[in-house]
Every structure is written in structure tokens, then in C-alpha cells.
Design a protein around this nucleic acid. Structure first.
Length: 856
RNA sequence: GCCGAAGUGGCGGAACUGGUAGACGCGCUAGAUUCAGGAUCUAGUGGGCGCAAGCCCAUGGGGGUUCGAAUCCCCCCUUCGGCACCA
């Protein structure tokens, strides 16, 4: 019996070794062929979860693979360390957010090190450290100078549970993205980043990011939500006021029969006639009190009220009534809609409800529409009618022509609107980056001078009060002198959204010690953009859009010379597991189940569907316990083998055992042959190899080729691993001895190859075996193996023979044989003869060295 | 409603540009080893018919293109994800 595979000892040993030798440190020179591998940094919530394990395993395989292939690889790790959970923990457990966060970082760093990840820990960055967030403030000031940061009072999303404001991107279905509480609206003074200035560029570049998954790009396009059309001016009758509308359908302008304003529209108050005033005011108040989410989701019936005012259709000069309607939102377009009931479903419903006229201006080809009997709006294109000079032309053509007419007469213009809103970054919480602004009664809003940065977050704060920013209670913080006039002034007490922190952290990794600037220009132009970014799909819009915006803004400030931060993006799937349920006690964890029964009540447990691991469903698996039991190598191997990275992964204990078994097989393969391996060199070339030896040599090189392509080109780690398994299986088939030099050499080459190819996945065991077979140089400094094309060539090749598309035989032919030669061989095959007997051959298709199809 | 992704054995998944469907792993079955269990090794494992050689069927369903389709085209169904009174 050989020594057993002791993962604990091996993994501890090699982790210490890598750490002491600073194996994965990358110097600050800017020479060589660079590759920047980045994984989304974690929030230090306490412990890592399987999603992290998967994310970081993917990055590590790639990183180690590229290092062995001679690339200069930057592979850093850090902490997205500001955020609400720290503050909530502080409130619940009376521990300071800073301590809570730092302790979590300590713990999680140890967990990551236990996974054997190849990070350059010298570049570790933590966003809650003043040496990091001072540059947040610095960038904020640069944004402020360029009017990319501004303050405005407005209706904002308020999460009562988190007692803070949320950006639009952080509201999902009307619920807070973090705690799922219903979001309310509040009027507050808030800081915004003018991301809308980049709306067009952000959109345009989604068509150039070839290395991003299509679905992420689509989500971003939807989010930016560009629509093109026209802005049209409708003068109000007996008034100097005009109503501006945005429409994507200028072709329907002649069919406008009324006007709808958003209840929040400023004109409502000004144009409503006195006899309608009370009714309108009641209506506006009622709608504004309505549940915002229901209103936004379109769940309410179309309702409205007449203002008493009329406006003029600029093309027809017809008077049309102005309504206030609950389905018009102030935030989009101009907050006013020209209503064309015949050609817009919402307007149609509204018109029917209030008895307003429906006028058809576009007819479907070859059909006529009757306004009195229409059941729904006709929204397709067609032929123009009742549209003055445009009658008879196609509606698609009329679009442009009508806009031209409007522009000529000064009644409107071509216009584009976006769904994207500016990014509200103020947060009424403590544990975040202070906004470097001072308010002075004399000077107004004054930026903190650069030389006074950082504005340090004070330690002693009572953050238990709800509703206002905790910093507002700290007098020593709030009270300051105006940097401009020196008189007493007040500091801004909100902190920044933590998505600001993560919008540029990948730049700080490049020069984490830079004192005078956020990052070093020269180093950044060497390393950026990130060549491969890896993370979860949940950031498809949030973080990934913000980081793109930051990159463009920093470029325009003159700090960067790239347009996009991430060349290639890999969005890994979720880690899922089956759920267990007790009819009485709900979801159960593995520990709460005894056999097939609930430990609490003894009732039979229902095995539910495979769902994303979550605490609430109690189907999580703790990485620590898996690493304890099977080791980091097994854990990594399984999470990469069970599914391709972008797909969801079903966690299975049996699968983990399978991975463990495989590593055991590799371990025994080496140790059972340790003498043979030690006393030989790998063979060089395929000369003189016959039979099984030739087969082993051939498969060895075929595996090098496949694994190299699967890792480097396709990220198909699962198939790479299965190819290595096949090679190992073949070596277990070795029947004869390993006595002659040639046998030893072939075997040694094959085993070395297995170790090298497996090392990015399972680095500890491979490093150990590599050393044991007598290598001095550590594996992580050893070049990746290259395949020998001549070893891949076979003299004889199996060709599949089909008759009428059905496989009937397989024949061996010399490689590269002519069609006629193969045909002769095939026709002599008894099976083929049987199927072609008494039949006339119509055609023979031959794909060289692969397949022959005989059509009879 | 619109947009996107995906449907392959008992399960996770292979099949690169149309060319042996089911690699690899899990699970299951049998054998070897063992006092026994575990571990390990070997063999088998899509379905149907057959003693067997073998034949037929099979990649969500239906049609088509092709010598040949999981892969290309058309129609439909299901699941997941995103957006949605967006003018």
C-alpha cells in the first residue's frame, strides 16, 4: 500500500511555500506580454460562500494557465468593504462597523488563502481604508469640477428599512435590491453623477464589446433605453404657455385628439381653469398617493381628469382638450403625451373610458379602419390618411417628412430620449465614503480642497438613530470652517453609494501605493483594460454600467486613455442545490434531516427543486466544511468540472466525492510508480513507438492540445478536466511492465503531462507530485507543455462507413487515403456488401479521414 | 406584450466549422480483493425486439433543406432571465 493522499498536509505545506516565496507577486515594471485577470471583489460579509469559490476558482485556473504560458499576469484581490450590513451588524450586536468589517476581512482572507488562489496579496485593496477612499473623494471633486457631480432636490427612492436613498438601478420591481422592502418616494437634496451625459456612448459601445455575453449587453441597452422621435410644441389656448411632448410616432400627429399630462407636470397648476381646479387638485393628490410601484407597473386602470384647458395641434390648428392622466410619468420624456387613440393602445383605452374622439390617420394596407368599431389601437405601419399633405404615403416615410415640416416651421424638432436617469449617490448612512463638500451660508456649496483630503470618517458615531444621516449627529465632524471664506460652515453628512467605490477599484490594484494620484498613468496604460473580468450576472446593469461610466469620465478628465474597462466578461452561473422541506417546519438544512425524516417532527422530508443556494432556503453548503473534508483541490476541481462556467452549477456531494476519487487516482498512479518515474526522463518524440506505447504517446499529446484549447480559448474547464481523466484512465490500462527505457520514458511523459495539465485546477496536489517525481523547479514556474503535431498523426485511421446515412461499418484505412482506395476497402467489408447487394450505387460521399456515405 | 438564453439517458453534462449522439463524472448492476464493511480495481449501463449476430427507435413537438441534422430553415410547446402604462 502506498502512502495515502493527505490533502490537509499537502495543501498547508504548499500554501505556506507560495506565501513565503511570494510566488504570485507581479512587479511594477511595464514590460512583457501582460494579461489582467480580475474577479469581482467580495463584500466582507463574514464568510465566503460557494459563489465566491466558483468565481475565484475560474479566475485562478485562467491566471495560473496564463502564467505558465509566459504571460505577465496581474491577478489581484481586495474588499468592497463599505456597506450597510456592517452598520446593521453594529446596531444589532453593538460592534463597531470598522471592527466588524476588519475582522471579517481577516477571516475571509484566510479562507481565500486556504483555497490556494494565486493572488498578488501585496496589492490587496480595501475600500474602507482612508488611503483608498481619499481617491473616491478626489474623483468626486474632479467630477464636480466638470459638472459630472451635482446636487439637486428631487423625488428619490427611499428604503425605509435601510433608511437610505437608493439609485434607480438599485430598485427591483419596486423593492429594495438588498432587503426587498417596498421603496417609497421622498423629496430630498441629493448628489447625482451625470451618467446621462454618457448615455449615447455607453449605448454605442455595447455594440463594440465583442467579449461580453450578449445578454448582459442587451440588459444594458434596455436599461439605457434610447428612443428616437420628435419633440413637438403644442401652444395652450388663451395663454403664453406651450406644452412640449416627446413622441416616437410623429407620423400619427394628425390623429392627436387630446393631450395627457403627468400629475406632477408643472403646467397642470398653471393652466387648469378655476372651475376645474378642485377636481384636478383632488385627482393629482390621489394619484400621487397611490402606490408608486403599482402605478409604475401599469396595474391601475387608465384614469384622468380634464383641466379645462385646451391646446392647439400645431399641424392641424385643431383645439384639443388637455387632461391629467395617471399613466403619464414625469420622469420620462417631457412628462406630457400627445394622445393618438387610434394608434396607441393606452390612449385608446383612455379615449374609450372618457368618450374622447378616435381619429384614424394610418390604415393597414388594403383595409379600412372604422373608429367607432375599433376594439384596439392599430399600432403597425401603413398608409397615411386624414393627414393633409401626407395622405397616401407610407407612414414610415411620413415620420421623417413630418419632422422636417415641424423643424421648418419651428414647431418641433428631431429628439432622442433615454430611460437612463442620473445616478443618485447620496446615502444617509454612516459606513461609507464621506462626500467632500462643505456648505457655507456665504459661499454656498464649496468643495473640500484637494490638499485637505481625505475627509476622514469619524470613529465615534451614534448610528442607531433612524431616518437621518448618522454623521449629522457628530458635531466635530459637521462643524467646520468654510475653505473659501473661513467662516463657520457645515459638512455634507451623507456618504457615497458603495457602488462608487467599486467603479474604479481595478485601477487602484495597478498602483495601490500611489500617494499623489489615484493611480499611476504609465502603469495603468500598460495594464488596462482588464483582459478578463469574471463575476456574477447580478451586476449586469449596476456595477458593470457604473464602472463603464467611470472609465469614460476618467478618460475625459485625462487620466486614462481607454474607452472601456473590461475587454472580456465572463458571467458565471449560480451555485444551486436541491431544497429539503418538511410539511410542518418548512425548509430544512442537511443537518435538520435524519435519513429521510425531519429531525424535529419525524415527518417525511420532501426533496424540492434545485434552486440557488440561499440562507432562506437552507440549501447552502459551507466551503470551509467541504475544504476540511476533501481539500481545496477537490473543491475547486468539482466546481469547475460539474458545469461550464457560465451555466448554473448543481452542487452534489456525490460529485465532490467523484472529484476527490479522481485526485486519489492520480495520487496512486504516481506513488505506485514512483521509482519508475524518478529514474527516467520523459521521451522526446514518437520515433520507434509501437502499439500501446504509441497510443499513450499519441493520447498524451492529444490531451495537451485539447486542454490548452479548452482553457485558453473556450473556458470549457469541464471538458478540459474530462480529457485529463481520459488520459489517466488510459494509464490505468497499462498492462505490460515499465522496465525498458522506452516504456519508462513514455510513462514519465504521460504522467508529467497529467500533472502539468491538472495543475491550474488542483495546484497543491500537482505541486507535491511534481516535486516527488524529482523536479527541482516548482510547478508554478514551469512552462506549460506543448504538443508535438507529429505525435497527433496516426498512420491508420478509422473511417465510418454509412449506407444511406446509417452507420454500417468501420474500416481502417491509411491516413490521407484517396477516395477510391477507401471505397475499395469499404466495399469489401461484409456488412457493407450485405447492405449494398442487389442495389445500384447512386452516389458516394467521402469526407477524408472521417466518413464515407454510400447512397444506393 | 417585447427582447434574450436554453430544452440531449435516472442525474450533471459531451459532441469545435452539418459527418460514429450520449465523451467525462455521478448513480446503478455484476465480478475481483477483503473475515466483514469501507476503500480500491475490472466490466457493463439510452429505449424496444432478439438466444445471438443484429435490427428498429431516440437530442421538447411537428414540418423542411441535405447523401447525412442535436447542429441549418419554418411553425408550435415548455422553462429560465431581463424590460415594460417609456409616449
Amino acid at each position: 500500500m502506498v502512502e495515502r493522499y493527505d490533502h490537509k498536509r499537502i495543501e498547508t505545506f504548499w500554501q505556506k511555500e507560495w506565501e513565503e516565496r511570494k510566488a504570485f507577486r507581479v512587479d511594477h515594471t511595464t514590460e512583457g506580454e501582460k494579461f489582467y485577470v480580475l474577479e469581482m471583489f467580495p463584500y466582507p460579509s463574514g464568510r465566503i460562500h460557494m459563489g465566491h469559490v466558483r468565481n475565484y476558482s475560474i479566475g485562478d485556473v485562467l491566471s495560473r494557465f496564463l502564467m505558465m504560458n509566459g504571460k505577465k499576469v496581474l491577478h489581484p484581490m481586495g474588499w468592497d468593504a463599505f456597506g450597510l450590513p456592517a452598520e446593521n451588524a453594529a446596531i444589532q450586536h453593538n460592534i463597531h462597523p470598522a471592527r466588524w468589517t476588519l475582522e471579517n476581512i481577516e477571516y475571509m482572507r484566510r479562507q481565500l488563502k486556504r483555497m490556494g488562489l494565486s493572488y498578488d496579496w501585496d496589492r490587496e485593496v480595501s475600500t474602507c481604508s482612508p488611503s483608498y477612499y481619499r481617491w473616491n473623494q478626489w474623483i468626486f471633486l474632479k467630477f464636480y469640477e466638470r459638472d459630472l457631480a451635482y446636487r439637486k432636490r428631487g423625488s428619490v427612492n427611499w428604503c425605509p428599512r435601510c433608511s437610505t436613498v437608493l439609485a434607480n438601478e438599485q430598485v427591483e420591481d419596486g423593492l429594495c435590491w438588498r432587503c426587498e422592502s417596498p421603496v417609497e418616494q421622498k423629496e430630498l437634496d441629493q448628489w447625482f453623477f451625470r451618467i446621462t451625459r454618457y448615455a449615447e456612448e455607453l449605448l454605442e459601445y455595447t455594440y463594440r464589446l465583442k467579449g461580453w455575453p450578449e445578454r448582459v449587453l442587451v440588459m444594458q441597452r434596455n436599461w439605457i433605453g434610447r428612443s428616437t422621435g420628435a419633440e413637438v410644441i403644442f401652444p395652450v389656448v388663451d395663454s403664453d404657455e406651450v406644452i412640449k411632448v416627446f413622441t416616437t410616432r410623429p407620423d400619427t400627429l394628425y390623429g392627436t385628439t387630446f393631450m395627457s399630462l403627468a400629475p406632477e407636470h408643472p403646467l397642470v397648476e398653471r393652466i387648469t381653469t378655476s372651475e376645474r381646479a378642485q377636481e384636478v387638485r383632488d385627482f393629482v393628490q390621489r394619484v400621487r398617493a397611490e402606490d408608486r410601484t403599482r402605478r409604475e407597473k401599469g396595474l391601475l386602470d387608465k384614469e384622468g381628469v380634464f383641466t379645462g384647458a385646451w391646446c392647439i395641434n400645431p399641424l392641424t390648428q385643431k383645439r384639443i382638450p388637455v387632461y391629467v392622466a395617471n399613466f403619464v410619468v414625469m420622469e420620462y420624456g417631457t412628462g406630457a403625451v400627445m394622445a393618438v387613440p387610434a394608434h396607441d393602445q393606452r390612449d385608446f383605452e383612455f379615449a374609450r373610458a372618457y368618450g374622447l374622439p378616435v381619429e384614424v390617420v394610418i390604415t393597414p394596407p388594403g383595409r379600412r379602419l372604422d373608429p367607432s368599431t375599433m376594439k384596439e389601437a392599430y399600432t403597425e405601419e401603413g398608409i397615411m390618411v386624414n393627414s393633409g399633405p401626407f395622405n397616401g404615403i407610407k407612414s414610415t416615410e411620413a415620420m421623417d417628412r413630418i419632422v422636417e415640416l415641424l423643424e421648418k416651421e419651428g414647431k418641433g424638432r428631431r429628439a432622442t430620449t433615454y430611460r437612463l436617469r442620473d445616478w443618485g449617490i447620496s446615502r444617509q448612512r454612516y459606513w461609507g465614503c464621506p462626500i467632500p463638500i462643505v456648505y457655507c451660508d456665504g459661499c454656498g456649496t464649496v468643495p473640500v480642497p484637494y490638499e485637505e483630503l481625505p475627509v476622514v470618517l469619524p470613529q465615534e458615531v451614534d448610528f442607531r438613530g433612524g431616518g437621518i444621516s448618522p454623521l449629522a449627529t457628530v458635531r466635530q465632524f459637521v462643524e467646520t470652517d468654510c475653505p473659501r471664506c473661513g467662516r463657520r460652515a457645515r459638512r455634507e453628512t451623507d456618504t457615497m453609494d458603495t457602488f462608487v467605490d467599486s467603479s474604479w477599484y481595478f485601477l487602484r490594484y495597478i498602483s495601490p501605493f500611489k500617494e499623489d494620484l489615484p493611480f499611476d498613468r504609465k502603469e495603468v496604460s500598460f495594464w488596462m483594460p482588464v483582459d478578463q473580468y469574471i463575476g456574477g450576472i447580478e451586476h449586469a446593469v449596476l456595477h458593470l454600467l457604473y464602472a463603464r461610466f467611470f472609465t469614460k469620465a476618467l478618460r475625459d478628465i485625462g487620466l486614462l486613455d481607454i474607452d472601456e474597462p473590461f475587454t472580456n466578461l465572463l458571467t458565471q452561473g449560480m451555485v444551486c442545490k436541491e431544497t429539503l422541506r418538511c410539511p410542518e417546519h418548512g425548509f430544512l438544512s442537511q443537518e435538520e434531516v435524519d435519513g429521510k425524516r425531519c429531525r424535529m417532527c419525524g415527518r417525511e422530508v420532501v426533496v424540492g427543486g434545485v434552486e440557488k443556494m440561499s440562507k432562506s432556503k437552507k440549501n447552502t453548503v459551507d466551503p470551509d466544511s467541504i475544504i476540511d473534508r476533501y481539500g481545496a483541490d477537490t473543491t475547486r476541481l468539482f466546481s469547475l468540472f460539474a458545469a461550464p462556467p457560465e451555466r448554473d452549477l448543481d452542487w452534489s456531494e456525490e460529485g465532490v466525492e467523484g472529484a476527490y476519487r479522481f485526485l486519489g487516482r492520480v495520487w496512486r498512479l504516481v506513488l505506485e510508480n514512483i521509482e519508475v518515474l524518478r529514474e527516467s526522463k520523459p521521451c522526446d518524440g514518437s520515433k520507434g513507438l509501437e502499439g500501446f506505447l504509441k497510443e499513450v504517446h499519441h493520447v498524451t499529446h492529444r490531451t495537451i492540445k485539447k486542454v490548452t484549447q479548452d482553457i485558453g480559448e473556450r473556458f470549457h474547464f469541464n471538458t478540459a478536466i474530462s480529457a485529463i481523466m481520459e488520459l489517466v484512465n488510459l494509464l490505468y490500462q497499462w498492462q505490460g511492465g515499465k522496465d525498458s527505457p522506452i516504456e519508462k520514458e513514455v510513462f514519465r511523459e504521460a504522467v508529467e503531462t497529467v500533472i502539468l495539465l491538472l495543475s491550474p485546477f488542483a495546484p497543491h496536489i500537482c505541486e507535491e507530485l511534481w516535486q516527488r517525481i524529482g523536479n527541482e523547479r516548482p510547478l508554478y514556474l514551469t512552462p506549460w507543455p506543448r504538443f508535438d503535431p507529429t505525435a497527433l498523426e496516426k498512420d491508420e485511421i478509422m473511417v465510418v462507413v454509412q449506407v444511406n446515412g446509417k452507420v454500417r461499418a468501420r474500416v481502417m484505412v491509411p491516413r490521407g487515403a484517396e477516395k477510391e482506395v477507401v471505397q475499395d476497402i469499404a466495399m469489401k467489408d461484409p456488412k457493407v456488401m450485405e447492405w449494398t447487394r442487389n442495389k445500384s450505387i447512386k452516389r458516394i460521399v467521402y469526407v477524408p479521414d472521417r466518413i464515407m456515405n454510400i447512397v444506393v
